[in-house]
Each structure stands twice: as C-alpha cells, then as structure tokens.
Design a protein around this nucleic acid. Structure first.
Length: 293
DNA sequence: CGGATTTGACCACT
DNA sequence: AGTGGTCAAATCCG
C-alpha cells in the first residue's frame, strides 16, 4: 500500500472514531454543542480524505491520457470518462421477482456470465437512449454471497427528462459507491433515515452524494454484523434486476430507506434537510434513537 | 403489432 | 487468449 493510501485510511479511521463519539453524545441531548464540534471535525477529516483520493485520480487520469497520446492510438471505448456509481439493494426473501422502480425506464440489452461469479450480470440502458440521447447505463448482478442482495452499478448520468410516473420511491437502505474507474474507491457509509421509510429517486443520488460524503458512517457493522458484505446496501421491498441493482462488494455511502411508505416524508425532502449537516434537527436525532445509535 | 427480453456473436481491452 | 461489454436477430409478451 502506498503512503498516500495509508494517510487516507488514517483519516477515515479518525473520522470513524469521531463518529463513534458523536453517537455517544447524541444519546445525551445536553451535549449538542459538543456534537456539532465533532461533526465539524468529521467533515474536515472526510474532506481531507476525499481530496487525497481526488488528487490520485487526477494523476492517474493524466497518465492514461499521456499513454494514449504517446501510442497515438484511438480507442473506441472511453471507459475512464464515465462516471460510475455502485449501489446495492438488499431485498427480502422472495422479492427478487419484484419490480424496482428507480424512476427511470431501463431496457435490457445484454446478459453475461461473469468469470468468478455464480450469477450472471444484466446490462441495462436508458429507454430514451436513442430518442433523447440519454447515455445512462446500469449493470445488475445478484450477489454471490447473499442472494437477497442485488448489486447495481450505474454508469453515466441520465440526460433524459422522462422518469416513470410516480417518482420511483423504492424503500430501501442504500449505499452508493462512486468509483473512479480503477481501484481508487471511496468508502462512505451513511445512515440517514428519520424513520424506517424514506423514499428517494435515483436521479437524486448524484446530488445527494455530496451530502453523504460529508457525513457517513460504516453501517456495515450494524447491518451485517461484520459479515462479509463490503458494499452499500439498499433495502427494497420490491426489486427486479431489470429495475435496479448492484454494487458489488464495495463500500460506499449508505442510506436506509425503509420499507413502508406510510411516512409521508420523501427522500427528496429528507435529503434536502441534510443539506446542512450541522443543522440536523430533532427528527434526525430521533432517528438515531430509533436506530439505537 | 410494437416494444421488451433473450442470447449467441462480435469487439475492445488487458 | 481470456474476459467483459455491446450488438442485433430471434423470440416473447401485452
């Protein structure tokens, strides 16, 4: 492991420790000021870590471009320019056949057996690819480790306006993972959720990402007891590979959106309230209690 | 009948 | 040469 990677890990570990302390403080409503201070520190640490990783990406990318230029080779596939985001959906038993709606219309264009994986990977692209030149693509694969988890990898952003009728509001716990096209991966787990039901539209993942980035925990320990899941989780009542899925063993940000829709607050409004992390309101604190933080 | 899915073939990349 | 991603003809389905 190179030195800069160690530094990043060190930064993230510090953030984790501070987060733990914050959790303890949150149980004591009298220490709000202390909690705010901790949050500020966490934000600073995560920002440092992110900056380190971004710098690595810039360096790596420039090297790739130089290599191409030096060889004077024109390659058809420009993989490194695509923005990818991995997400995992954790589905309940017997729900695989359900249909997940992430707010977009997808059309399956291929399926492949992946070397080393038990389950095939499905390839989906936006239905409006040709009508609106929307280049969004996603890959869905059932987790080998846990059949109840679908790993979904989103590549590119939607440029189409058409989302399916009602905003897809999957109820799930989400963890997204943004990857550079290489091994530079950022791990950011988050556990928002005011209640156990939040609705969110995938089109908002990108915009919310920064929010998660500023405040995230590794909830993997909570949800899997340290078991093998390395990535982000989505809890969804209904999900079909065609609709969404992915995020193979990776790490990322996590949002839990629960399973019923009784709570009227949508993910959108929920996340909006996160715009200023420091201003988490009483509701958020309540959710911490609910989650037994 | 039109749109979506399946699936083998093809191609880019390593 | 092996692997993953995409294409496109065949097929399915509402």
């Amino acid at each position: 492991m190179v030195m800069e990677e160690k530094l990043v890990i060190n930064e993230l570990e510090q953030g984790r420790e501070l987060a733990k302390r914050l959790m303890s403080n949150l149980k004591d409503t009298s220490s709000i000021e202390s909690s705010k201070s901790l949050i500020s520190e966490i934000l600073s640490i995560y920002q440092n870590a992110i900056s380190m990783l971004d710098d690595k990406k810039v360096l790596k990318r420039s090297r790739e471009i130089d290599d191409k230029d030096s060889k004077n080779v024109i390659k058809k596939r420009k993989v490194f320019e695509k923005k990818t985001e991995k997400v995992s959906f954790f589905v309940g038993a017997g729900q695989e056949k359900g249909s997940i709606d992430d707010g977009y219309c997808w059309r399956k264009y291929g399926q492949k057996e992946i070397h080393g994986s038990i389950n095939p990977r499905g390839y989906f692209r936006c239905t409006h690819r040709f009508t609106q030149n929307c280049l969004a693509v996603k890959q869905v694969q059932k987790s080998d480790r846990d059949p109840s988890i679908f790993e979904v990898k989103y590549v590119g952003s939607h440029t189409c306006n058409n989302t399916t009728t009602s905003p897809k509001t999957p109820n799930f716990s989400v963890s997204t993972f943004q990857e550079g096209n290489t091994a530079d991966e950022q791990r950011e787990d988050i556990k928002p959720t005011k209640t156990e039901e939040a609705m969110m539209s995938f089109e908002d993942l990108e915009s919310k990402k920064n929010i998660f980035r500023t405040f995230s925990f590794s909830n993997y320990e909570f949800e899997n007891g340290g078991g093998g899941w390395k990535g982000n989780l989505f809890h969804e009542n209904q999900l079909s590979p065609a609709a969404t899925t992915s995020g193979s063993g990776i790490t990322s940000e996590i949002a839990t959106a629960p399973a019923s829709v009784e709570n009227s607050e949508t993910a959108d409004s929920y996340f909006s309230s996160l715009d200023n992390i420091i201003d988490f309101g009483p509701d958020w604190l309540l959710s911490c209690d609910v989650l037994n933080w």
